[in-house]
Design a protein around this nucleic acid. Sequence first.
DNA 1: CGGGAGATTGATTGTGATCAATCTTCGTGG
DNA 2: CCACGAAGATTGATCACAATCAATCTCCCG
Lengths: 243, 243
Amino acid sequence: MPHTIIDIKPHCNRCSFKELCFPLGLEADEFAKLDAVIRQSRRLKKGEYLFRAGENFTSLYAIRTGFFKTAVNTQDGRDQVTGFFMSGELVGMDGLGNKTYTSDAVALEDSEVCELPYYRLNELIEHFPKLSMHFLSMMSKEIIRDQNVMLLLGNMRAEERLAAFLLNLSERLNMRGFSPYDFVLRMSREEIGSYLGLKLETVSRTLSRFNQEGLIVVDHKHIRILQAKKLETMVTGCNISSE
Amino acid sequence: MPHTIIDIKPHCNRCSFKELCFPLGLEADEFAKLDAVIRQSRRLKKGEYLFRAGENFTSLYAIRTGFFKTAVNTQDGRDQVTGFFMSGELVGMDGLGNKTYTSDAVALEDSEVCELPYYRLNELIEHFPKLSMHFLSMMSKEIIRDQNVMLLLGNMRAEERLAAFLLNLSERLNMRGFSPYDFVLRMSREEIGSYLGLKLETVSRTLSRFNQEGLIVVDHKHIRILQAKKLETMVTGCNISSE
DNA sequence: CGGGAGATTGATTGTGATCAATCTTCGTGG
DNA sequence: CCACGAAGATTGATCACAATCAATCTCCCG
């Protein structure tokens, strides 16, 4: 496993994103137990796969730092980016159902993840049944996120999709204490396009137009949002929210 | 609550779809406990809402008989059908995360559902922690289903979407012991269109073309599939599977 | 410094949306 | 039970948005 280092005991308590991984109020003893289970931290270089579609499901992963995309692929080579994930978000939930991952997860920058091995998850739930409701809740939120992507793909025009995408990123960065109006895109135009059901040229053109219209400033991967309000009115209906 | 009758004790053991609601091997005592919790059966007339977006989350529902659609709606009136559900399938999982349903569920024909009240689900998991893995598994499968819809909406052309849709219905009907090649659509052209990200005219035209080409026979809502193989080659990549 | 991937911009095309008219079916009330 | 009306479906003509094809351009990364 190249570029991979296993650390021992990263401790959730020292992680500034713990409340993002486990947003619901946990009792002290429950949290301590959880912390003990998440004992492995894994580092990935940009471009490395965290898991691949078809592999046996081994773990859920909470992202500690960095940025990931997940994608499903078809037999004929097409693929669809199904999500972008940042600190405090959970990936791998699609693997639980059939004990096999159905998507790829790829690091889009050097990243660090906290691993929740499946067998330990089992033990944990056995001993702390209340915790299982937290996991059900997080999976439910993933379903809600997916519903919103369906809404976007099924109903919205190119500029609405882009606006929704930028605002969603903005909101999630804000929640993590980063600037919501000045950030660097971690993914390529092609990956944005795949996620939004558009071709990369359309993504590029639409961003350029937003730039001309003074809604945003685009400097390659660097984005500054100037008129968030106008972007919001563009996405009238869609209530995309991070998780 | 008009048209609604509450029955007592439907008993999963008498339900021919129990293995669809709970596909994983359950111990006898676990299943008995589950059976005891699902004690309410509710009947709905065609057009009735099982729940609406924004309502407090009260229960998960397993469909006993009938057919449902789920849909999310935007502030500006557009809406997106997010799924069609038949016997043995579970709806309401989007409500668990925020204790509020985020979608509507509407009966597309007279239907009967088994109710799993949230507070009873909690009790159940407390006493039988192993059961929670079954629910996590079912939610994971819902996520996989959603990923496949994203793939369809993001990557496929109109005829591919329709072919995938018909084959998916066919497969699920087959699993329930119904004819996979001769069935009645429960939803309108507009609802199919909303689900597939197409306009109703495109759905109608594409079905007509399949009919002319001898792939299927369309008689309004009655569909006969003549050349499933050809439909399958149309959807090369997409691996849509029911749940 | 050079090469290659990614991004931008332009010209043209094509698929599906839109607008529109007719037809069918089903539900409702007389 | 039949007639009527409304909703749903089909089909046609036209239009628009995003895809495609194509030609630079820029910026990393080696």
